[in-house]
């Protein structure tokens, strides 16, 4: 998840840890860590069902709805998280004390509670009063949690833009709102796109938590197969490999995006 250091918030670099494995630039050889991991995993996902179709092909047949559900939860959550994050990030830099405190407290509270506990809280605790659909509860928990982290990314991104940009915009007669929309945020995009990509990957992995409230995502489907057939080892091996292939694929895309943004002129 993004960890944005207060004292470093002025620099353009947004440090992100615990994303997925970030492809190491400059390590272009075919034996790069990424290549070994990705093609190794992909090879196993293809080979194992061929070599031993009995459980492996069966698992592969069983989990696709789960993969779809995982993507559904991830994509919907990330969209809400982005919206919440933008609002929170703007709140964190707001000069309105109330708005500022509200956004800051939200970020601090959410970051201090494990995602799994938030999920339980929304589904089981609030569920007593609201009776939320489990999918809705899962997406709500993921969005609220990741919204806080996204908020920090937006805040750091906005604060990484030199002060002179806001001043130039204000001096031309723009309102702060116009300056943010027309001048600051468009510039922020290139800095925050890679960290947002990493949040997407982290969220995709964390989405496996929703299986606990019985949303039938990839992990849940694997578990269902395992518990009816008792092929625990084979089922979870397959599930792990599929997660790995997906996250490595996206981390490659994030890496390429990062490189483009760094080298891409202007």
């Amino acid at each position: 998840m993004a960890s944005v250091n207060e004292s470093e918030s002025r620099s353009t670099q947004i440090t992100v840890s615990d994303g997925a494995l970030i492809p190491d630039r400059g390590e272009g050889s075919i034996f790069s860590a990424w290549n070994i991991a990705f093609f190794g995993a992909l090879g196993l996902v293809i080979l194992l069902p061929v070599i031993s179709p009995e459980p492996y092909l069966e698992v592969i047949r069983f989990v696709p709805d789960g993969i779809l559900k995982t993507f559904q939860v991830t994509v919907i959550s990330i969209i809400f998280a982005l919206v919440i994050g933008l609002v929170t990030g703007l709140g964190r830099i707001s000069r309105n004390v109330f708005v500022n405190r509200l956004a800051t407290v939200y970020v601090e509270v959410i970051r201090g509670i494990p995602l799994l506990v938030q999920l339980f809280y929304i589904y089981f605790a609030l569920g007593r009063f609201l009776s939320l659909d489990r999918l809705v509860a899962a997406i709500t928990a993921m969005s609220i949690c990741y919204g806080a982290y996204m908020g920090e990314i937006f805040r750091a991104g906005i604060q990484s833009i030199p002060k002179g940009q806001m001043e130039a915009a204000l001096a031309l007669g723009m309102s702060r709102r116009q300056a943010l929309r027309l001048v600051i945020l468009p510039q922020t995009m290139r800095t925050i796109l890679p960290p947002i990509g990493n949040e997407f990957i982290a969220l995709l992995k964390d989405s496996s938590l929703v299986s606990i409230v019985a949303v039938s995502d990839l992990l849940r489907r694997g578990r269902e197969y395992a518990s009816t057939t008792f092929f625990y080892f084979e089922s979870y091996t397959m599930v792990a490999l599929i997660y790995l292939v997906i996250t490595l694929f996206f981390s490659k895309i994030v890496g390429i995006m990062e490189e483009r943004l760094e080298t891409g002129g202007r």
Binding site: A168, L170, A171, G173, L182, Q187
Partner: peptide
């Protein structure tokens, strides 16, 4: 401010816009 133009030491042009768009935006 609409009637008071300002030129800064560090130019402060908007880097994501072309020269023409920098001028036409406000």
């Amino acid at each position: 401010r609409e009637e008071v133009g300002m030129v800064f030491q560090n130019f402060n042009l908007f880097p994501h816009l072309t020269a023409l768009d920098n001028i036409a935006l406000a």
